[in-house]
Design a protein around this nucleic acid. Structure first.
Lengths: 229, 229
DNA sequence: TTGCATTTCAAACATTTGTATGAAACTATC
DNA sequence: GATAGTTTCATACAAATGTTTGAAATGCAA
């Protein structure tokens, strides 16, 4: 068998098994059985189990990051170099949410693998995630261009909350479904993205609206009002 | 030695070690060495390693849940049976954030353990978390009383997003710190709670404000506008 | 003290798991 | 078709780990 076939078979089997049963449950022996290759093949082709997991995660992360940056670039071109803030947030959370939610995505191994990686955080994946900061800085820069003059702190918090809502929705979609007794439609990805983007942009405009509606009178405390003064 | 002393020593040692080094890194032998008890004591007193972890997590969860419900009850008494929505959200996210963030909390083993449990999700903990839905329903009910007539779906999404921001801030505080180059002050717990509560309530008022400020014109899509019609 | 129940202890068990080895099979180049 | 490089394979290795065991120690009541 050509060397690449074995490599690919291992990657595919590992991703499928990890996605279905989690990292803690799947051994190399499970993987090689599923891939119909020899046990030693994993170490021969990848060096170690951790490097196999890392390669899986890096591959999928790069795909997501590329999609994000493509959307961001498209938004910036649309806006003549300066993207609208909602388009930036959409580029940030859209690819991840589209990749991991939705009815047809149930069968997507890649998506289920990324959800699993988000729930069970194993050392090789944690190491990679730590490098994600550089990628996020590009979004912070775009946000700064979109909202010039705004305090950087507010930008970072907005970025952080956007990721919070997106990732938590993916991580805890089962719980939200159960809590809401099915009322929250987790298959309508478009609506979810809209919702996350809307709230993210609202978070970024804290202290922005001169006169707050009377329905929420006492919400602002502490350092949140700096922009109003 | 009295039986309870051994039990307590194991619990304390296990919580400390898990908090510092994570579940994957700590073996029963590490724990009994730290606790100065015999290896077999863990199985004698707890039955199994998983039951030990479960007991640790249940204990801390109960504490948090009790704090939450106390705050909720206080808010409802203050409002004469119907708590203000921002007080409800504050009762929901306040205890967790206060427990896990802040400068002096660095030394709190319990807090660090809960952060660890949030990052590394091991099977015994996952099983317990699945039962958390019942607890959250009490908050959903309070929210329903505070915002009568509002679509339940909106309530659940707001609750979900509030937890998203709180938990993600705890999980990813290191990354946010690094991304913002220290600009986001994660020691000012009060300000963080205010921020999360503010955004949560804003999320709940989607489609609530009759005329949206011109600064965010095109944010609402899809099913988000149902309340406006 | 005697007797009974609880607790502790050292040691062994039984797996599981990732990794290494060395020979065999295969592939491609000359 | 011989040779060198690559890949596969069965098997062994070594270490870690949760759990069990049966005896010894301890505590406690009668």
């Amino acid at each position: 068998m050509a060397s690449d076939q074995t490599r690919s078979a291992i990657l595919a089997a590992a991703e499928r098994l990890y996605a279905d049963r989690g990292f803690g449950d799947v051994t190399l022996r499970d993987i090689v059985a599923e891939a119909n290759v020899n046990l030693a093949a994993v170490n021969y082709h990848f060096g170690s189990k951790d490097e196999l997991i890392a390669e899986l995660f890096v591959t999928r992360s790069i795909q997501t990051n590329r999609e994000r940056l493509n959307e961001l670039r498209a938004a910036e071109e649309k806006g003549g170099g300066r993207a609208a803030i909602e388009d930036i947030m959409r580029a940030l959370v859209g690819p991840t949410l589209r990749g991991c939610l939705g009815p047809d995505r149930e069968g997507s191994t890649a998506a289920r693998f990324m959800i699993r990686a988000s729930i069970e955080s194993v050392p090789p994946i944690r190491r990679i995630k730590n490098r994600e900061v550089d990628h996020l800085r590009k979004f912070a820069a775009a946000m700064r261009r979109a909202m010039p003059g705004r305090d950087d702190t507010e930008l970072y918090w907005g970025l952080h909350f956007a990721l919070a809502m997106a990732h938590h929705t993916i991580r805890e979609k089962e719980r939200l479904l159960r809590l809401s007794e099915g009322k929250c439609d987790l298959d309508d990805v478009r609506a979810i993205i809209d919702r996350v983007v809307t709230v993210s942009v609202m978070a970024l405009t804290i202290g922005d609206v001169p006169s707050r509606p009377a329905t929420r009178p006492t919400l602002v405390h502490g350092r949140l009002t700096r922009q109003d003064l």
